[in-house]
């Protein structure tokens, strides 16, 4: 398994993380729409890190198996956590001045989306999956 880890400390790291995501998706044979979906999803999640937790990590790895090509991304921080996850997943809900499109929008862009949050640790895991052509 080869992976990349990017520390998220300021808004420049958002760009670094999403570029790394796009590169990995491109390298693994995903088309430009999928590359953009993944880059945008990473952008949303890492911005949340800056906005709510000030710093964290974005880890990209290739979890492909015999059947599927899988780009796996984990974005985590040690911030205060999300109080009401169900509410945060609602379109239009935001505790900051955001549009409230970040989390629900991200979920629609990727093949799988999971988020867990307790005070002091929030982990969002997303995957872009594509069937291998044999």
């Amino acid at each position: 398994m080869d992976g990349v880890q990017i520390e998220i400390r300021d808004t420049r790291d958002i760009i670094a993380a999403r570029s790394a995501g796009r590169d990995m998706a491109r390298d693994r044979g995903f088309g430009s729409a999928d590359q953009t979906r993944l880059a945008t999803a990473i952008s949303e999640l890492t911005r949340n890190v800056i906005q709510y937790a000030s710093n964290g990590f974005c880890t990209l790895s290739d979890l492909s198996n015999e059947r599927d090509i899988i780009v796996h991304v984990v974005v985590e921080d040690s911030g205060p956590g999300i109080e009401d996850l169900a509410q945060a997943m609602e379109f239009g809900f935001s505790t900051s001045k955001g549009l409230g499109a970040g989390l629900p929008g991200t979920k629609r862009l990727v093949s799988s989306f999971e988020i867990e949050s307790v005070p002091g640790h929030t982990v969002a895991t997303i995957e872009l999956t594509k069937r291998k052509i044999i």
Partner: peptide, 9 residues
């Protein structure tokens, strides 16, 4: 090549 919800706003 990326317009996320922030840039859109």
């Amino acid at each position: 090549d990326v317009v996320d919800s922030f840039m859109a706003r």
